[in-house]
C-alpha cells in the first residue's frame, strides 16, 4: 500500500506516492527521477547517497522515504552557482581533479557543503574527518581534500555556497 509523502526537494515542494519500505535514496532516484544521488553499498557504509536533510548530511539509503515527510532535502541536482554554472564546490573539484570515475562525487560534494556551512575554515584534518563517511576508490582522497580546502578559501573571499 502506497502512502502520500510530501517533502521539499531542492526548493520545490513535491508530493509522491511511495511504498513504505522504499528508502529516501530509492524515492529520489525512482519516484523523484533524480539519479544524481548514487546508490553504492545501500547499507550506510559508502556515503555515495549523501543528501542534506533539514540541514544535516545523511545517508539517504538509511532513511525511509516516509520518514522524510515534511523534510527539506538538498541533492546534487540543486547545486549550482546560477543557470548552467557549476556550484563553487563542483568548480573546485574540476580545478583540482577531485573526481575520477565520479561515482562518489555527488555524495562528497553534499558532505562538503554541509561541512563548509558549519565550518567555513576547516583544517586539512577536519576535512578528512568530515568526509570519513564517504568512500572513494579512485583518488586516494588527496585531490578531494585539496578541492574542499580550495572551496573553503574562496568562501572566505566572499563567494557563497
Amino acid at each position: 500500500m502506497k502512502r502520500l509523502v510530501s517533502m521539499t526537494v531542492n526548493g520545490e515542494e513535491i508530493e509522491l506516492a511511495i511504498p513504505p519500505y522504499r528508502t529516501l535514496l530509492d524515492v529520489l532516484r525512482n519516484e523523484g527521477r533524480l539519479t544524481g544521488t548514487k546508490k553504492g553499498c545501500d547499507v550506510g557504509d559508502c556515503g555515495a547517497c549523501t543528501v542534506i536533510m533539514d540541514g544535516s548530511p545523511v545517508n539517504s539509503c538509511l532513511v525511509l522515504g516516509i520518514e522524510a515527510e515534511g523534510a527539506t532535502i538538498e541533492t546534487i541536482e540543486g547545486q549550482h552557482a546560477g543557470p548552467d554554472l557549476p556550484h563553487l564546490i563542483q568548480e573546485k573539484f574540476m580545478d583540482h581533479g577531485g573526481a575520477q570515475c565520479g561515482f562518489c562525487t555527488p555524495g562528497i560534494i553534499m558532505m562538503t557543503k554541509a561541512l563548509l556551512k558549519e565550518n567555513p575554515n576547516p583544517t586539512e584534518s577536519e576535512v578528512r574527518f568530515a568526509i570519513a563517511g564517504n568512500i572513494c576508490r579512485c583518488t586516494g582522497y588527496a585531490k578531494i581534500v585539496d578541492a574542499v580546502l580550495a572551496a573553503a578559501e574562496d568562501l572566505r573571499k566572499g563567494r557563497t555556497l
Binding site: G44, S56, V58, N59, L62, A132
Partner: peptide, 9 residues
Amino acid sequence: VGGVQVRSI
C-alpha cells in the same frame, strides 16, 4: 561512531 551522515540520525 560511523561518519557524520550516520551520527546525524
